[in-house]
């Protein structure tokens, strides 16, 4: 192997932060230029309460937390959450909220017209859907996101 075969021909020590990683893999909280658009999206879809909870998780849960060293908010989960939020139809007057799971995933919950819960957890590789009213309780890969939203939530 030559030097040109390996774009990174040097190594970091284990505790040295590698800024060449994609932002989604970095543990460092950086300025994120897309956040203004995200703030508008979450305000439009979930109101001030949803916006406040997202900010709370972003600012206070960026490192290990809780009694069992739960995982910090996952940037990948956050990316997927916003991708889905843009497409979801959440009834205007329904109660909706955001939660943080112990795995560092964002979880979106709202009450449907029958006051029953709809829950979506955004994992880094797949998402979990629970619809209390219809008994749906399943996990899907993100390549099916549009299909699942069309099927259950596009209304």
């Amino acid at each position: 192997m030559t030097v040109t075969d390996n774009p990174r021909s040097y190594h970091y020590s284990d505790n040295f932060l590698d800024f060449t990683d994609e932002p989604a893999r970095s543990r460092i909280t950086k300025f994120e230029p897309g956040n203004a658009a995200r703030e508008q999206t979450i305000l439009r879809k979930l109101g001030i309460n949803g916006w406040g909870r997202w900010q709370y998780f972003r600012t206070c849960f960026s490192d290990q937390w809780g009694e069992s060293k739960q995982r910090p908010l996952s940037p990948r989960s956050q990316d997927r959450f916003f991708e889905a939020l843009e497409k979801l139809r959440i009834p205007k007057d329904s109660k909706a909220s955001v939660f943080l799971t112990d795995e560092g995933n964002l979880e979106l919950v709202w009450l449907d017209d029958a006051d029953e819960q709809v829950q979506i957890e955004f994992g880094p590789k797949d998402f979990e859907v629970y619809i209390e009213g219809s008994g749906i309780d399943d996990q899907y890969s993100y390549d099916r996101l549009d299909e699942i939203i069309d099927r259950f939530f596009a209304g």
Partner: peptide
């Protein structure tokens, strides 16, 4: 992180 006092929703 699991309870939203504003909406009264408790996370599974």
């Amino acid at each position: 992180d699991k309870w939203d006092a504003e909406t009264g929703i408790l996370s599974a």
